[in-house]
């Protein structure tokens, strides 16, 4: 038996932020890009153990899992627990596509009163609580990269991006945080 591979996560040791905006890399998570037609939503919801959101900009959570609506037939499902997302989707028997993107994406957690200001340093979305309440999510832009943004609390966000863009995302957040109120 060969030795076992060890894991090296992006943004290891990255730190930054200010008193009003705290930045930290999220821990590793399981993720799938889930694609399916309308007819498969309810069975997939059952086997995944959460109800896949069907409204734009919304997410749904259950236990360690969160499903983010990204498009009319597309969800990003994140599991911060044991995983098994691909298998769960497969067990539905519905026609769908579940592709493991656990390592493609990485996430940065942004917390504090200035978090929306810092994000608006590069994100063109209206991040006021009225337009983007807790639980909202969207694929959008942050500076020159594409990200998926999830509002986890009034003053906290999770920013998902592809791993090779994570240094840029963290760097821009670090600089924008300096300018956040």
């Amino acid at each position: 038996m060969a030795e076992l591979a060890t894991r090296a996560v992006p943004l290891a040791g990255a730190h930054g932020g200010t008193a009003s905006v705290r930045l930290k890399p999220a821990s590793s998570a399981h993720r799938i890009s889930l694609r399916a037609g309308e007819d498969a939503v309810s069975t997939l919801s059952t086997t995944l153990g959460l109800s896949l959101p069907t409204q734009p900009k919304t997410s749904a959570s259950s236990g360690s899992r969160t499903a983010l609506w990204l498009g009319p037939d597309e969800w990003l499902v994140i599991d911060e627990g044991e995983g098994g997302l691909v298998e769960a989707a497969r067990s539905s028997g519905a026609v769908h596509s579940a592709t493991d993107v656990s390592h493609r994406n990485t996430a940065i957690l942004i917390e504090g009163p200035g978090s929306s200001d810092a994000l608006n340093g590069g994100c063109p979305l209206d991040l006021s609580l009225k337009a983007f309440p807790v639980g909202s999510c969207a694929r959008t832009l942050f500076g020159k990269i594409e990200v998926v943004l999830l509002r986890t609390g009034e003053q906290s966000f999770r920013l998902e991006c592809w791993r090779s863009f994570s240094e840029y995302a963290f760097g821009l957040l670090r600089e924008a945080a300096l300018d956040a109120e």
Partner: peptide, 19 residues
């Protein structure tokens, strides 16, 4: 230009093996 200068001018993508 605001933030778009130096490292933030354009993301430099590095592979997982870069190190």
């Amino acid at each position: 230009i605001a933030h778009s200068r130096g490292d933030l001018f354009d993301p430099a993508r590095k592979t997982p093996l870069h190190g």
